[in-house]
């Protein structure tokens, strides 16, 4: 049985190094580039000649953009519109990586199944939230962690908890996406292996492979759903964190 973790191994395609750091072009980099290319084509074609009455392609891009804008309107308010491009970038990169990684046979790699990548994305969100919060509210940004109307001792206690929970946000954000992607791909791989193992039962070939094959098909559909939902969750949480920085409470 093939190791189900093998699919996550990062293979160097072209070794590179900058200032002593290893920045080799790997299969992970390659699939990030493929995702970038897919998103670029989608966006550039969709907005090539924007019309008041949109064509199909423009309608598709508008649908996604409108989705992000509505999410920001609902969770952040009118000032959230400024951050629509950022949240949109994060959302579409995660979505493209998740979905492209599910393509079978082509040796697809899912960058979002690596905690390094999801943590990098989470840090983009976290740093943005901190910068926006401090820039808008200055020292008063710390009021985010202080419970309103509590006495000093209880307040200090809650402050510590709130502050720690704020610091764990990038980790939870990163691990949620990474764990979902990894688990899904492992599950697919395991059931895929079952198809081969059970299907090659000598006395009665193929027959027993049908059940795990059906499960794999069902799981693939589920994974497509999860790929979309997790991209949405990532963007939704990013906008909720952004809301904290913009509106405090």
């Amino acid at each position: 049985m093939a190791n189900p973790m093998e699919q996550f191994s990062v293979e160097t395609i072209k070794p590179l190094s900058v200032a002593g750091y290893d920045v080799s072009f790997t299969n992970s980099s390659l699939w990030m580039m493929i995702a970038l290319a897919a998103v670029s084509i989608f966006l550039f074609v969709g907005t090539a000649r924007p019309q008041l009455v949109p064509g199909r392609w423009q309608a598709a891009t508008e649908y996604l953009y409108d989705f992000v804008r509505k999410m920001l309107d609902e969770n952040v308010g009118p000032e959230g519109r400024k951050f629509a491009p950022l949240i949109f970038s994060i959302f579409i990169l995660v979505l493209a990586s998740n979905l492209l990684g599910l393509i079978p046979w082509v040796g697809a790699f899912t960058p979002t199944s690596h905690v390094t990548v999801t943590f990098g994305l989470a840090m983009i969100v976290f740093v943005t939230v901190c910068v926006v919060g401090v820039w808008r509210h200055g020292f008063h940004f710390l009021a985010l962690f202080w419970p309103k109307g509590a006495n000093v001792f209880l307040g200090a206690f809650v402050f510590v908890i709130e502050f720690l929970s704020f610091l764990t946000r990038p980790f939870t954000l990163a691990i949620r996406l990474f764990a979902n992607m990894t688990a899904g791909h492992v599950l697919l791989k395991v059931f895929g292996t079952f198809v081969v193992t059970l299907g090659s039962f000598g006395a009665l070939p193929y027959v027993f492979g049908i059940l795990p094959l059906a499960v794999t098909v069902a799981l693939t559909a589920l994974e497509v759903l999860i790929a979309v939902v997790q991209a949405y969750v990532f963007a939704l949480l990013a906008s909720l964190y952004l809301n904290d920085a913009i509106n405090l409470h």
Binding site: V23, S24, F25, L36, L93, T116, V117
Partner: peptide, 15 residues
């Protein structure tokens, strides 16, 4: 480092 570097390149180009 390889992934972080390429992620930031990708994200910068995308954004």
């Amino acid at each position: 480092w390889p992934q972080l570097a390429w992620l930031f390149v990708t994200f910068a180009v995308l954004y």
